[in-house]
Nucleic acid binder design. Structure first.
Lengths: 337, 337
DNA sequence: TTGAAAGCGCTAACAC
DNA sequence: GTGTTAGCGCTTTCAA
């Protein structure tokens, strides 16, 4: 059995309150401090966070619910937030709900019953219904990478400027003279998918170009999906001259498809990809891409929840900006129509 | 403030013990059951796991310490173990120590002070020194993917048959007539690296072939590393005719390098890769590869820790077998020397 | 600065 | 089957 503060009190002859104060940064007489520190050594004392939680009604645990742990974008965000939170002595319980709304709801209840102090969630259920009990429990909630407008006044949200990012990429291609621009999107209906489509449409419209629905494919944010989408796009009779792919997995799949089809980038096709992920290093050094600041996203989530936890800062939405990282995968051409 | 069992007792007119028993699967009179259930509804009661933990000395939390969260192999294992553990009402606190031994030690202390019931760890510190306090605290420990012989009688271990897997892959290449076989390894000194090298050497020796150190490269288990390793290997004057790459990231990088160098697989080079990860779908459908059962690894870890937690099953080492998944990336040739 | 004592929400004897 | 009660290890008044 691990030793307790009572043991320390006995050993040092001090009172429980003094010991407790020592551990909570209170002032303790020098000789008592030494007494306590020695006893801690001898007894291998480790404060019991569980007991502390019960007393203070603060578990110092943040629940994180995500659609999928096996996703490099998500894990790089979690890594960053976990890092910052742990430094503040907060633990993170991660629940992977496999993009299943039922599981997501279960995760909320599971975490609530663990008395987490707050929730960070990349929602699967776009209605936000799964969050009801957490809202009732009045704990701070931060949404990541998806926006649920109906919840705006009750939860904080961290997103990137999806529409802007997409507009920007398409502008870049337009500027280089491209008119037939392909777009590979994620799952239809998803927040980021809709935003990125919107940006595409905005930029085309601003340039007075009519959108050809044949140039738009849904690759479900997977590598296979990207591979297939790009393959299909390139089989058309009057193929695109440029392509924007809207997440990392699909970019990877798409680039492989191009290689297999012997389509050179940028000679035969200009490409703008998405995301730069640490684990993949410099996989396509020449690729122009939209870069989401995963680390900032993670840190922002952590900061927001910490803020809400301490000085009742009210819910707000933070939109982080992406960057266009220029490579050499966009070729300037003379518009052919 | 959330409601407590006391509130339920008051509301129903029952005693605390009855309420408690109800929640712990004891028998309660039918009409009381209904009474309680109604009160639970009305008061939005959620049992407080923190209080329960304090009383029972069981936190129902398992700590997981890994070198890197941004690693597809690791997350697929964690996903699987988390899934199984949560079903048993165990939460998982994940600590990413960034392959840093100091951080790893800190993570152990952090988790101990949270009173985790057990620890699952893919160790960064090969000596296992970081586990001392956890061993002192007598909590069950499961090591994953790395073996620390000195700890064998105190912790359980889940690994794959690394040596066997490597032997098998090389045998396959030898059988197809290859004599000059390249090997791309991970970080020197790492358990899996050593094992996979050993398997390579074993198979060569058994075939009476002398090992050429020029054919062995270290790609640090990264995509960039794999890319470079393969590039270097192929630049030699008398290049290899076959290649075994020993993890997923390096396989990905290596395959890209080959494509960039216009080296065809298997016409110009036979290749056996490593790992099949869900998130990447069928990225190289034709590639022959060694497949590690990530889901089984995760489940095995969960089962082992659960076993140790309940019936004092003593520490044991489980070695899971890999499979050679045959593609068409190995070509049979006539040995040229 | 220090100590005594109450109590956080729950479980588990124990007696009924 | 149910109720009473003592405490799990800690924080936090309050008084000394």
């Amino acid at each position: 059995m691990a030793s307790t503060m009572k043991d320390l009190a006995q050993k040092t002859g001090l009172g429980l309150a003094t010991i407790s104060k020592y551990f909570n940064g209170g002032t303790v007489r020098e000789k008592n401090r030494i007494l306590i520190e020695n006893a801690v050594q001898e007894l291998h004392f480790i404060p019991n966070e569980v007991a502390r939680s019960l007393k203070t009604h603060r578990s110092h645990v943040i629940g994180v619910i995500i659609p999928e742990l096996s996703n490099a974008f998500i894990t790089s965000i979690i890594s960053a937030m976990e890092d910052l939170l742990r430094r503040k002595n907060y633990a993170v319980i991660v629940c992977d709900c496999r993009s299943d709304a039922r599981r997501e709801k279960e995760a909320v209840d599971f975490l609530l019953n663990r008395r987490v102090d707050g929730l960070i969630n990349m929602p699967t259920d776009p209605t936000g219904a799964h969050l009801k009990s957490a809202l009732d429990a009045q704990i701070p909630i931060v949404l990541v990478d998806r926006h649920i407008p109906a919840l705006d006044d009750r939860v904080s949200t961290v997103v990137i400027d999806n529409v802007r990012a997409s507009e920007r990429a398409i502008q870049e291609l337009l500027k280089a003279g491209h008119r037939r621009i392909g777009l590979v999107l994620g799952n239809p209906g998803l927040y980021t998918t809709d935003c990125r489509l919107q940006g595409y449409l905005n930029s085309l419209k601003a340039a007075g170009i009519e959108c050809n629905p044949d140039y738009i494919r849904y690759g479900n944010y997977t590598m296979d999906g990207g591979y297939q989408a790009v393959q299909e796009l390139m089989q058309s009779e009057r193929p695109i001259t440029a392509l924007f792919i809207t997440n990392f997995e699909m970019t990877l799949g798409g680039m492989l498809a191009l290689q297999h089809m012997n389509i050179r980038v940028p000679e035969d096709l200009s490409v703008i990809g998405f995301d730069k992920l640490e684990m993949f290093g410099n996989i396509f050094p020449h690729l122009t891409l939209i870069h989401q600041p995963q680390v900032s996203i993670g840190h922002e989530c952590a900061k927001l929840i910490l803020d809400m936890l301490s000085g009742q800062s009210s819910p707000r939405t933070v939109s982080l900006s992406t960057q266009l990282s220029e490579g050499t995968s966009v070729r300037t051409i003379v518009p052919s129509d």
